[in-house]
Design a protein around this nucleic acid. Structure first.
Length: 753
DNA sequence: TAAAAAATCGTTTTT
DNA sequence: CGATTTTTTA
């Protein structure tokens, strides 16, 4: 005990040392509700970690502290820094993790209360999409009016708001709602049958658990006496309710966030949660961290001049003692190729003169934009890393491997089973599979059991019976072994026996070799996980893996140039940042010009991007850009106009100064012409500049159009002329509609070929 | 049943 | 354009 006291005192000095007064005050507040409004680059992470260390130094047990983040990376970073302050042994006892991973862990203890098995699997967006497709097929709604994508995202956004299918069925406004409620209901039933939860269920089911069992609620309220939520501006309703339930008794809840950096509204995040915190907890203390330690004055001024165009925010006044710094380059490029060439060659030059690749970063709005940057990097032999996008875990062979493991862990997981049953082919084709599914349904057994009892199924061919029985035996064999042996060994042999690797070896191509290595990497990963977590099971491994994203991977420190979306960049910082594609319709993305709320979110995203930069910021846009294999013409982003001109340095890719009266910038920014598609990239530029009055486009059958209310649809017919022109559009959401062209205000999305 | 060819489709952002 | 799904054919 004596010993520990000394240690605590030493730690205590570390904990407050070098903090500014606001930071210190926040760190030293122990009890009661606390809101920390942390501007970009204000040392937020430091305050959070030091505060947790301070709680522990003041006698709070680390296992009574719950710290919730949005990414595993943030959680890992937090743990690492707490460990530096108070030592590994204490730090690892803190409950720090993402909402999803912590709740998943807690759900496993009491899954039975909700009617789930403890070994439930977690469905990612792909899994849940394919489940939606199956439901649509089953209910005979496929092809008709509902696209699986839109149904899935609607289900998700309802779940984020805790809206049940019954709620929708009761309040249905249209026939469409009725059908949707039906799909939603069936989707949930199927999840339950598969003993699976989607991402949103992890939040909602945890709430249900707390509501259903008073014991469980008490248990966790007692356990998590001190709760801390990072990025509070991005919490959705489910996360809000869950944290409030947990904190209700002790009210030791500390939330940290920056309303100016709320960028997940589309995923159900409710910025109101942070704006209303003081109303939820009237006694809450509030601290504002307004001292920025990251960026130059120029960058901060630019960020401020952008964000002040938003209404509805907590007042903040970011300041810095850093230098004024360089002007912000704004570079007008001819094409997306030139844009990538400019950015990558600029970075390459800096690297050649001694700078490090990891000090730079290229940000873009959509993942699709990464392609040209990759090409440019490869051309110059510049190592790069794409964060997000096609992640390791989304690759086919990796998903297949994980699906095999899922079947092993949770034999009810029909999604996983269907995914791998013919990977490699096993002589169980569509017809046989359908017979097996029917057998499972009519006997109310899970799919694997139907495989096991294939010999009772008179519809099956002999060959299929043998194949199905073999497969079931194969799974059962390894399930038995799992009970006795170390799971990493079993998993390794199991995957080897699936035949995937043999199949790929036979192909022999370079790509196949890559895939084999990826599969092996999963096996290694399992072994490492087992070593790191000696008491864990294969269930644990499979469950945590589905909640991991690319940004969590540790490859950052290496000498590679990071490329990522603006969303992925949240929480990161780089000496020099390039933001590409500042074009109307791309950033801010098109639907934002109708809806002010969306536009404000895009602006916050821009704010996030700008404030990632420490020393230097460059913004680029391109006049032409490839979209869907055809060229589209772009106007500069309206956001460029919002930055104070005195902070900008207008350039051409050659490095020459663009005249301040650069035609594109001067006109494009204020004009109303939308990005329009052409099929010849050599249309003279003059035409582009004179296109301020956009000619009336004549729609044709086959065109893809957008309607303000009805969404996107395909033109299937035209009739009449002049003011009487009528147009038939088949909307993906609601089906066919006959509209009067002059009132419909249709917007061209894509021309027919 | 499985591989190859053809057609279709789409672009936010992610735990 | 490139990925994915549907259709055709062996």
């Amino acid at each position: 005990m004596q010993f520990e006291n000394t240690a605590t005192k030493v730690a205590n000095n570390n904990i407050i040392e070098g903090l500014n007064p606001e930071q210190k005050a926040a760190v030293q507040t122990i009890n009661g509700p606390l809101l920390i409004v942390a501007g970009a680059g204000s040392g937020k992470t430091r305050v959070i970690t030091n505060r947790i260390a301070n709680l522990i130094a003041n006698g709070v047990a680390p296992w009574n502290i719950l710290a919730l983040t949005f990414t595993n990376k943030a959680a890992g970073e937090m743990k690492k820094r707490i460990a530096n302050l108070i030592g590994e042994s204490q730090a690892e006892k803190v409950w720090a993790g993402t909402f999803h991973s912590i709740f998943a862990k807690l759900l496993r203890y009491d899954a039975e209360i909700l009617g789930y098995d403890r070994n439930f699997t977690i469905y990612d967006a792909d899994d849940s999409l394919s489940l939606v497709k199956k439901v649509l097929e089953e209910l005979n709604l496929s092809g008709a009016s509902m696209s699986p994508q839109s149904v899935r995202s609607r289900i998700s956004s309802n779940k984020n708001k805790l809206i049940t299918w019954q709620n929708i069925a009761e309040n249905q406004r249209m026939q469409y709602d009725k059908a949707f409620a039906e799909v939603y209901k069936r989707y949930n039933e199927k999840l339950k049958i598969n003993n699976a939860m989607d991402f949103d269920d992890l939040l909602w089911n945890f709430i249900l658990l707390l509501q259903k069992s008073k014991d469980v609620l008490n248990k966790y309220q007692e356990k998590f006496r001190y709760i801390l939520v990072d990025e509070y501006q991005d919490t959705n309703k489910a996360q809000y309710i869950a944290t409030n339930l947990l904190a209700r008794h002790y009210q030791n809840i500390c939330v940290v966030g920056d309303d100016a950096q709320s960028i997940y509204g589309w995923r159900g995040a409710d910025i109101q949660n942070i704006l209303d915190f003081k109303e939820d907890y009237p006694h809450a203390k509030v601290f504002k961290l307004e001292q920025n330690y990251r960026s130059t004055k120029t960058i901060l001024e630019a960020a401020d001049s952008v964000i002040k165009n938003n209404s509805n925010q907590l007042k903040k006044n970011l300041r810095t003692d850093n230098q004024q710094g360089e002007l912000i380059d704004v570079v007008e490029c001819d094409s997306d190729i030139e844009e990538a060439e400019y950015i990558i060659s600029t970075i390459k030059n800096h690297i050649n003169s001694g700078k490090s690749a990891k000090d730079f970063c290229v940000l873009y709005r959509t993942n699709a934009q990464s392609l040209e940057f990759e090409k440019a990097c490869r051309k110059r032999n510049l190592p790069y890393i794409i964060i997000g996008g096609m992640s390791f875990y989304k690759r086919k062979e990796v998903k297949d491997t994980l699906s095999y493991l899922r079947v092993l862990v949770n034999p009810k997981d029909a999604e996983a089973l269907l995914r791998i049953i013919n990977e490699p082919t096993r002589g169980i084709g569509q017809t046989s599979l359908q017979h097996l599914i029917n057998f499972a349904n009519s006997n109310s057994i899970d799919l694997l059991s139907a495989f096991r009892r294939a010999n009772e199924n008179s519809n099956l061919q002999k060959r299929a019976v043998v194949a199905a029985t073999n497969f079931a035996n194969f799974i059962d064999l390894f399930r038995n072994r799992l009970e006795e042996e170390e799971y990493s060994d079993v998993a390794g042999e199991y995957i080897a026996e699936t035949g995937m690797i043999n199949f790929l070896t036979m192909m022999g191509t370079d790509e196949a070799k890559d895939r084999i290595r990826n599969i092996e990497q999963v096996i290694n990963d399992i072994a490492n996980f087992e070593m790191d977590n000696p008491d864990s099971t294969l269930e644990d491994y499979v469950q945590q893996i589905s909640l991991i994203s690319d940004i969590d991977d540790k490859e950052f420190g290496t000498e590679r140039l990071p490329l990522m979306t603006l969303h992925s960049a949240k929480g990161l910082e780089f000496k020099e940042v390039f933001i590409a594609g500042l074009e109307r319709g791309l950033f801010p993305l098109f639907r934002a010009d109708q809806d002010p709320k969306e536009e404000e979110e895009e602006r916050r995203l821009f704010y996030v991007g700008i404030t990632r930069a420490e020393q230097k910021l460059s913004l680029t846009y391109s006049k032409k850009r490839m979209k869907f294999g055809s060229v589209s013409f772009q106007a500069p982003s309206s956001f460029l106009r919002e930055i104070d001109k005195s902070l900008l340095n207008m350039l051409l890719p050659s490095g020459e100064k663009a005249q301040s009266s650069s035609p594109t910038f001067a006109r494009g920014a204020g004009s109303t012409f939308a990005a329009k598609q052409h099929y010849f990239s050599d249309i003279p530029q003059q035409e582009y500049y004179s296109q301020i009055e956009q000619p009336q486009y004549r729609f044709r059958v086959g065109d893809l159009v957008r309607h303000k209310q009805f969404g996107v649809g395909k033109v299937t017919g035209m009739s009449g002329d002049g003011a009487n022109t009528k147009i038939t559009v088949n909307f993906s959401n609601i089906g066919k509609k006959l509209l009067l062209l002059q009132y419909a205000k249709l917007e061209l999305v894509k021309q027919a070929k």
